[in-house]
């Protein structure tokens, strides 16, 4: 469920990134890299788990599924926080600069 949540986040962020090209002032590229990187890593994790559990891997307990989904959402939220902090720090539109420095 964590893998699935992250893959959806990766697909959505890639679509948003592509739609904002060229220019991409919102710097959404970093979200794509983070979510795709994590998705690939969790995919490997899933393969190893499948090799261990077999078909049981696809029939998880409801409690485990809910917990994994909760973790997935938390991971997506963490990624968004990292992106937001980076965006405000880079300030590609120069908006924050204008807020911090008032004209005389």
């Amino acid at each position: 469920m964590t893998l699935l949540t992250t893959v959806f986040a990766a697909i959505i962020s890639t679509v948003v990134w592509y739609k904002n090209l060229p220019g991409n002032e919102m710097r959404t590229g970093i979200l794509c890299w983070m979510y795709w990187g994590a998705s690939l890593m969790w995919f490997v994790d899933a393969v190893f788990e499948y090799l261990e559990l077999g078909a049981d891997y696809f029939t998880p307990e409801l409690a485990d599924m809910v917990n994994d989904f909760y973790l997935g959402l938390s991971v997506v939220a963490l990624g968004l926080i990292i992106w937001l902090v980076r965006l405000l720090y880079l300030d590609p539109k120069g908006v924050l600069k204008e807020v911090l420095f008032k004209k005389k």
Partner: peptide
Amino acid sequence: GWLNKMLAGGSVLLAFEHVW
């Protein structure tokens, strides 16, 4: 740089999972 971002970003999110 693409590889750096994928590796570093993915590792940060996986580290969070390990903390979880």
